[in-house]
Design a protein around this nucleic acid. Structure first.
Lengths: 123, 123
DNA sequence: CACCTGCATCGATGGACGTCAACATAGACA
DNA sequence: TGTCTATGTTGACGTCCATCGATGCAGGTG
């Protein structure tokens, strides 16, 4: 455990992780919605969702770009989408020698899960 | 065991509720990603997210369109976004007399929560 | 040094999307 | 019937976005 490392969250661009209450608790403010929508939007593209799932499900929690080649789009497009996922705070990247490795950013995922967990209980 | 046989995925338009395994279980197929991305995409707009949160947090789990007027966009735009949320399977609507009421579709939310719950555990 | 490979960036293009005003439709009421 | 109110629909417009080929850059290998 001890995995709950809280991000600094200083930049207004990436106030992404601890932004919002459960969706059914109260109406989101414009600011909250803006920040949360960025995360959902990042996963709102089929290619990005496959890329993200590919990284998330890969052994060790990280994947090299070289492992990704069968998503049906060109290499520049893959790079473009990985960048988008990184900008949304969902992935982080690290270059090790020749290859670049991407890994899932757990805190942001937890935030999205919290948003939905509330609304899912709404029956 | 209990290999969680998934649904037949009948309608290509609304295979939305029980589409996908947790994001970190295995790479999503193109079909799965397509279906799941539709849901995320629907929440990927700030206005739609506010509308959805507004309905989800409203008393009784439903809200009349007349309750919604302060999202910062015109009425036709509100109607447009509500339609999008409905097409994505996140909301359902019902006309009762003069007013139209929208409510949250719980199964779809549960599906999205399941997708993320898996990936959130990924540390 | 030169050469090759893995990945990012650039510039262009076609399509999708958010937004609005104008109009259409449906129900309530007189 | 007619009129008013509440929503949905249409058409248009501007912007964003996914995609690609070409190119650039970094790191390994000879």
């Amino acid at each position: 455990m001890s995995n709950t490392r809280v991000l600094p969250l200083l930049e207004p661009e990436s106030d992404v992780a601890a932004c919002c209450p459960p969706l059914d608790e109260r109406p989101l403010s414009a600011r909250e919605a803006e920040s949360a929508a960025r995360m959902f939007k990042a996963l709102g593209d089929p290619v990005r969702l496959r890329l993200f799932s590919l990284v998330a499900s890969h052994a060790g929690g990280e994947a090299c770009v070289c492992d990704i080649s069968d998503v049906g789009v060109s290499q520049p497009t893959v790079s473009h989408h990985l960048k988008k996922l990184k900008e949304a705070g969902l992935l982080s990247s690290e270059r090790r020698g020749t290859w670049v490795y991407y890994r899932v950013e757990p805190s942001v995922l937890a935030a999205m899960g919290a948003l939905l967990a509330g609304a899912a209980k709404t029956v």
